[in-house]
Nucleic acid binder design. Sequence first.
RNA 1: GCCGCUGUGGCGGAAUUGGCAGACGCACUUGACUCAAAAUCAAGCGGGUAACACCGUGCCGGUUCGAGUCCGGCCAGCGGCACCA
Length: 802
Amino acid sequence: MSVPYNHKVIEKKWQKIWDDNKAFAATDDYSKPKYYALVEFPYPSGQGLHVGHPRPYTALDIVARKRRMQGYNVLYPMGWDAFGLPTENYAIKNKIHPKIVTANNVKRFKEQLHSLGYSFDWDREVNTTDPEYYKWTQWIFLKLFNAGLAYKTEMPINWCTSCKVGLANEEVVNGVCERCGSPVVRKVKSQWMLKITDYAEKLLEGLNDVDYIERVKVSQKNWIGKSQGAEVDFAIAGKEDKLTVYTTRPDTLFGATYMVVSPEHPMLEKYKDEIKNLDAVHEYQEQAARKSDFERSELAKEKTGVQIDGIRAVNPVNGKEIPIWVSDYVLMSYGTGAIMAVPAHDTRDWEFAKKFNMPIIEVVAGGANVQEEAFTDVATGKMVNSGFLDGLEVADAKKKIIEWLEEKKLGTGKTNYKLRDWVFSRQRYWGEPIPIVHCDKCGYVALPESELPLELPDVESYMPTDNGESPLAAMTDWVNTTCPCCGGPAKRETDTMPQWAGSSWYFLRYTDPHNTEALASPEALNYWLPVDWYNGGMEHTTLHLLYSRFWHKFLYDNKVVPCPEPYQKRTSHGMILGENGEKMSKSRGNVVNPDDIVNDYGADTLRTYEMFIGAFDLSASWSENGVKGCRRFLERVWKLQDILVEGDGFSSDMETKMHQTIKKVSNDFENLKYNTAIAALMTLLNDFAKKGSITKGEYRAFLLLLNPVAPHITEEIWNTCGYEGYVYQQPWPEYDEAKTVENTIEIAVQINGKTRGVVALPVDADKETALAKAKEVVADKLTGTIIKEIYVPKKIINIVQK
RNA sequence: GCCGCUGUGGCGGAAUUGGCAGACGCACUUGACUCAAAAUCAAGCGGGUAACACCGUGCCGGUUCGAGUCCGGCCAGCGGCACCA
């Protein structure tokens, strides 16, 4: 009898052996085939590891371990995305330096990850808050700055009333700050911006060359939001001036019955002397300014606006004068901040027109009555009431009107992107200092590369100042410096970078993490890039993923990296919810601590359970009973030792099953189907248990297949049973396709599409034989006239009778 | 409002992509072992019927010899959002 399965002893033992052997270190032998598996590095929060973390880490650990067994030089690294607000807020509250808070959190995370037996190469650990790391974050920023892609501008930004920081639009969730939940208002501030919009087209096109799951591609595309339309100039009546709009539907120009400008539009200031109802306009502007973008969209159902009295526009196609309105459903940040309204063919314009009694003119026929609802379909319908466009299809009308506008110099075809530039400043302490000084004479000047890293100085207080300046602003010794350009007095930038900065290039650093001369050597980058498989949360598909692709493409254009896309393959995992199906949170009281599971059941059980819990890309609810089931499975795997018999190969009655299982598990590990891979191993285990014996050859293959999921127990059994070396050094088991095929197969016999029996047939049975046998089986049910016989080999027999 | 995802037993979920719906696990029931319990092992387990029949993959239609899977129209839940002209 085998000794009882003691996970505590076994797991510690093997973790030590792996560490001592440096079993999972990626080598710098660039002659071997490489595989770079990457998971999003965590933010080391004070709460410690969440049971959600191990899900993606285990999945790619399986891939990494399998690849090593297949002979690849594997890079599977881990690090810390450690700048950020929670750490800073904790530091403020407890008056501890964020550096210390971070170090403590990292230590805890590392111990927890270690206890799970991941095959990370810990020699390549990176930390975004390490000056040796953020030196290169700053270096990339300088490159961007020198290329004209970083600029400072006065613009309305999202302002968190509590954190007192500007937030990227992307960081505002439901009108409140993503980090602290306080209301966000609009405030004008001078901000560093990164011109991601210059890369909109490249970011879009690059998606054609990568293997991302479809959902992620769609999100990226929608976020970039390319549209093709036209800019059209509307003359302002009685003035030598024009109002330019962007429209995706220039074909509907004849149906434009009014115009709308956003409350921030400069024409309102320019023509203030002509506007007779200036007070009403001003009041509307103020109301709009008080609303967040979220509120402006929340109130969408009820359109608001003020007609500008005193200024009118002229529709260029027919010379008709039309009114101009101001309304907050038009945003200054998209297009030109002004639109032509075509209520018959745009839903929002239609709602607005109905509320304010504006005329609705149909210019595309083919829909319902446009007085009742807007007709927005562009695929069907023909132009009407549109002069020289009448009778054309929408697409043709679009082309023709653009030609006409360009010929008359009234407008031009234009491609627009929804994507906006990236607000890159934070008025915060715990972030990378921006390596720029401001000199009255020279303007914004980049620090010379030799002065990097520009380290964060120690300050008294980490609190942002009330006027919204970073805590660094109070450090006059640090702020006052000399201009690298002219040597005169200058002031350092006191804003810091957003958390996204460090995570936009960390995967490059892993390839050569200790390099002091460059962010990584060209050889290392050339060998390891691109990342072969990157897995991360769905919540990062528009922010982090797009930002890091942008930086990578910029670095590619500057010949720093060897490939245009950073990630060859991107997958996403689903969330792990509490037992009650709700998001795990302290307030709901449904948080599960992975330490408890590791302690009570073992890391192998936790790993197995997280992979077995359900489809990898969907969210799944935690179940303690499910954990127990996986522990039971491992116990039974352990007890196979008691029925082990001699024999290096597979016994004849198990041969097909063995080859089938090797095939299924191998394929499932590649296709995010970890749950069914484990189910297949459970089925195989049941077969051996029922049979009462397993050969050494069969057990060997079984242990190899299970090893990536449950590495500790499999190494221990391997060792106890006297197999050679370590499991992690063995080649991945191979299957013989020919031996996965059964000689005879049971297929269903249907009558009129309903299963009436089952017949065993040789796999290659011809139709006659198959039908003859089938008819024997269902003879008593064949009572009518047979009108059709269907035989699909290996699938089905269906006899249709009347 | 728009976009994306998801609806299958008591529960988590399978179904080689149009071919025996419910693999595998959990829970439960019964039996064996035990003084007993736990653990373990064995059997059963969608509804329905004495047994068949029959009914069953959110709802309503359609295509097909055959639909969880494809098409059209809905409904519900979850997530995201920048009223994007």
